[in-house]
Nucleic acid binder design. Sequence first.
RNA 1: UGUCCCAUGGUGUAAUUGGCAACACGUCUGAUUUUGGUUCAGAAGAGUCUAGGUUCGACCCCUAGUGGGACAACCA
Length: 568
Amino acid sequence: MSATERNIEERGERKSLNFIEQIIEEHNKSERFNQKVHTRFPPEPNGYLHIGHAKSICLNFGLANKYNGKCNLRFDDTNPATEDVEYVDSIREDVHWLGFDWQDREFYASDYFGQLYDFACSLIKKGLAYVDDQPSDEIARQKGTPTQPGTESPFRSRTPEENLDLFERMKNGEFAEGSKILRAKIDMSSPNMHMRDPAIYRIRKTPHHRTGGAWNIYPMYDFAHGLSDSIEGITHSICTLEFEVHRPLYEWINNQLVDHKPQQIEFARLNLSYTVMSKRKLKELVEGKYVKGWDDPRMPTICGLRRRGYTPESIRNFSERIGVARRDGIIDLALLEHSIREDLNRRASRVMSVLDPLKVTLVNYPENYSEEVKAINNPEDPEAGTRNVTFTHELYIEREDFMENPPKKFFRLSPGGMVRLKYAYIIKCLDVVKDDHGNIIELKCEYIPESKSGNDTSNIKVKGTLHWVSIAHSQQIEVRIYDRLFMDEEPDGHKDKDFKDFLNPESLKILKNCFLEQSVNTVDLKQRFQFERKGYFCHDKDSSVSNPVFNLTVPLRDSWAKISGNVN
RNA sequence: UGUCCCAUGGUGUAAUUGGCAACACGUCUGAUUUUGGUUCAGAAGAGUCUAGGUUCGACCCCUAGUGGGACAACCA
């Protein structure tokens, strides 16, 4: 656990409990679950996990951890038509990567298909479930509307014997998909639509990714979920707000069939500004090639954030900070960015890289000479030590660090102006070289020999310090600059517009002419870097030996951008 | 013309009913700084959706209203 996490936790323990913790502590007082806390994270393996899932994962595992309980990983795989092992693997990887361990408790709703079938039979025997032969559209019609009661199915009064027989034959594959369905017999006039004889088992002849062709019928979510929770001894079944209206059904089913009855608790799902979070929309972005895949660094998926350079710790801190409640809202993306900056500031090695090079020639520095200057790897961490960087008469600086006609508060390089090259010398700009089109292509500068970092006797005070690389001692790299994927705070919050209308055309900029100091070995890189004065970067999997690629994780805060009006 | 949930600075969360409200992010000042980063010091910003009620006392309890959300998949 990090110092930040500990601080947050201590603050939390000293102060208030979130509403779920309050419920748990009430249960502990009343001994409802014998002081036990057992949660589960129940993804459906039909898509990749995103930052919203991370909130749920941190919540479920975090609560278990806090109350000395356990948290299971359970795949809610009751719909073979949409699910796949590809997703199972990615989910497993993502939960692990986030830092959580479910030990030997990796379960699948499909593990319980046998038991679930038996439970359905008992429901039938109790006269609380029946097989309906009507087509789905007819059943839907009879459901009524939220304001009008439904009507009862003509098959509602079949005898348990007949239902049992029919249900068994459904299982045996005697009937076509959609021709019959098992429904719970509850109340067609309930104000809660979910209580109007909900479907609990349907015929599906699609092979299941785990049970293969063993089953011709599959339980519906409402039937399988609560019973799976009960089977696993879950005490607190935490889910998002949209399941709130399912809670009466969740409880009805468990009340009919089992002794151990978990408590379902709903919380508001995470919404992040400038992004979309629904699986459907993320899938649309991937399939429509608006992004390069589920792990595109612009995606809010766990794998996308990972590739972007986010650390598990930063995501855990983020979920701690956003809290948990029952009202929906939108979290400011700035909070996520703050979390990763905070983490990377502490641990990322600083290196110098020029992303938009402008050549600087030091006219008074010997041509065939070079010196090694000492650079600090991480000012936040003395243990990180130092490294040497080579200094010569031909350098690159950042193009934006020079202005021919600078505004007042610009304290970088300009004609006649002086600036320090970090860890090296102060230089003075003597001349601006332009091409035929008037573009600046080079600066002729002189260096001040007495100004060398470490033993500066020049007595010159400069306001700016620039990063740089020696042209002869740098390596060319590709840098991918990412910005928010959407230009609107709530891209899916406009009734008359498609969320894709707000796609940011500049969400990815590929810079191929960047130069990185030689000290960095760009082969087989796992660590994250701060490119001085620019931001945090990580090595991308698209890298090759001849073309190293770095992703921008997040830029440094930039108060100059605010002053100069170049705010993102 | 229904049922249920929600409502606290810009954003997100707090506040054993009992000191006109705290924390984080964001914003703004200033200091430090060989990263316009970090750090440090400070500031602005809500009187808790509205109206009643209970109470000596309400962000908190009750009622009504308003606003937002959820609910009619053989999805989860």
